[in-house]
Design a binder for these strands. Structure first.
Lengths: 190, 190, 190, 190
DNA sequence: AATTAACCGAGACGGTACGTCACGTCTTTAA
DNA sequence: TTAAAGACGTGACGTACCGTCTCGGTTAATT
């Protein structure tokens, strides 16, 4: 017995449903007024929740907002069609959609701007979850001799992420399929 | 002849020296305390300027800060060494330095996050000034038959800018010369 | 039954001690720098209170200041020595002291000048509290046949109040006991 | 002798018409928005005058406003009907009208509240101009043996002024003719 | 006639205080 | 102990006036 979900505490247990009510309200508000107009007080009011319940769960506004979207940002999968070009295209489309869903520069850039050094770690974790599958499909391509063994995998993957970030978040022009294909065409195929 | 510097308004003209005093104070403060600790009141105090003089010139804090850096961000030149690989490397080093000088994610990301749709145009203008010289050197390379005629110039340039943005601003790891060279190695040389 | 001190709201109740801390700080500041130098920010700082707590209680600066003194202006008592002349003299001395304590024209006149129509009602209430005891002692004098039954009680009392207001607040010369006695001598004794 | 309207100076002479334009605009604004809403900038705008022209003529806002009304407040005359009671009644009616015209507490009280010690002298001068004629008619009454020789003239006159000030400015209820008559009836007629 | 100097309207200048808003914390009653 | 409500101290916001200071331009009296 025992085992460690442990300490149920003595008082009233936390209402787990509040978490999603809060994050939902946060997402709604960001959609409506943009990252920087969102206030903790508005979130609390919208979610019909006391401010204390908010701060009991997240230490700061940026944390709430990051979480509100982190749960939406599924890591892109690493497709395996047998062709590295096709895999890459699918991967880039997934990433493009994820970034587009974030609703413009507000969320990503806002989160970057506002979080202290501590919060940066969490953000980097998300970024890494994007990079992993990309690297994986490239290495599979190298294994199949589709790509040169010297392919700088990390640089390519970061270039992909950077390209999409730059286009979608900063320049605010979502790249077309043709542009994604052009990006793929730069791969050093054998 | 003549041409129109035209009739200045009737009241006391604005003191042009204040503009630079304000932007200088803004740059100092960002260096010292970071984007989000900067306040309009601190800027005014540091520049020895009334708050009204600030708001007479810029409508919002983000506008001041963007301007403070827009004036510093010189468009990177398009070097012409005769070798597209060498040109590209020099260009990327310039761009890397510019972004690094911006002092981390705070400034760029903060500016993106905070500005309304109107201000985005200005930012895009800055981004375009980065792209121009990069495209130029690539086209020269194509002209010299160093690069394939099919090279997707815009995609390459945006990929470069995005890569550096992603690494410097978001991941906060400044790329090494080797990494820049790896990026250059992806160019479709003939 | 019961009757309604009623349901206090659900949130944290207002800290009643702050009220007096604020009013005390206000009185100190008026004494030190005068009505028009007093600022809400100075009051808040002196009282160790947030500005919001001030504005939660009073809508405007004039309201705070009026209240600061309203609580000090005790209604003059209606002395009962058996002689209406003696009663009147004591009453006038009390009133003279109260007005003198207000520290010159600043407070009363300032409060009058600044408050909107709403606040005027409150001021009139204070004025009425001055008039009541004066009328009372005059009526006792009529009852004892010291004064003519036709004495215009209200006019006399308002004349007294006006005389003191005029002398102390506007002309800024505090009336002597002899002058008060001269005022009393005008009463239509039988 | 000559005597000194003197020194016409060399530059452009002041435009005398501006004085009345400014004072007129001031009176209009006080009527419209009340003493404390009046700003120097609004006066200048309304009078179509530069702020410098305002400050060239009056050192402070209170000075402008006081002047704006000082020119309207004609000193009450000392009527001479042969009956001190009738004289007093007419005098009080004049005074009542003057005070009523001032438009409520704003002007008088505001002027009192705001002026420094220096400006108080000017106000007292106005008050004295009210008292003079009142004292005069009382002394004539004493001379005609209508009033007791012991009548405390100054106290009576100040009581009248105070009564009207109190009623019109502070209590904001203009006294009726009957009330004025009751005031007169308190005179120690022989 | 040319010069000089004070005037004019306009409006920018450095300040100061305003009243509002959001932060993150604390304090109440109720479950 | 958690919940909702909402008061708390703090501090920045953007606005409004203050009284002063330039501007370009006008209007006499003096050279």
């Amino acid at each position: 017995m025992s085992e460690g979900e442990g300490r149920r505490g003595r008082g009233r247990p936390r209402d787990e449903r509040l978490d999603e009510r809060i994050l939902g309200a946060t997402r709604e508000l960001i959609d409506e007024v943009g990252y920087h107009q969102v206030t903790m007080e508005a979130i609390a009011a919208r979610a019909q929740v006391g401010k204390a319940s908010l701060y009991r769960r997240w230490p700061t506004k940026a944390a709430v907002i990051t979480d509100a979207f982190a749960t939406e940002l599924v890591a892109p999968s690493a497709p395996d069609t047998g062709s590295v070009g096709e895999d890459a295209l699918r991967f880039l489309r997934d990433l493009r959609q994820t970034l587009t869903l974030l609703g413009g520069p507000s969320v990503v850039a806002g989160a970057v701007a506002e979080r202290g050094e501590a919060g940066q770690a969490e953000l980097r974790e998300i970024l890494r979850s994007w990079s992993g599958p990309g690297a994986e499909l490239l290495r599979r391509g190298i294994g199949r001799d589709e790509l040169a063994a010297s392919t700088p995998v990390d640089v390519v993957v970061d270039g992909w992420a950077g390209y999409l970030l730059y286009r979608v978040v900063f320049a605010r022009v979502v790249p077309s399929d043709d542009e994604l294909r052009a990006l793929v065409s730069l791969l050093p195929t054998t």
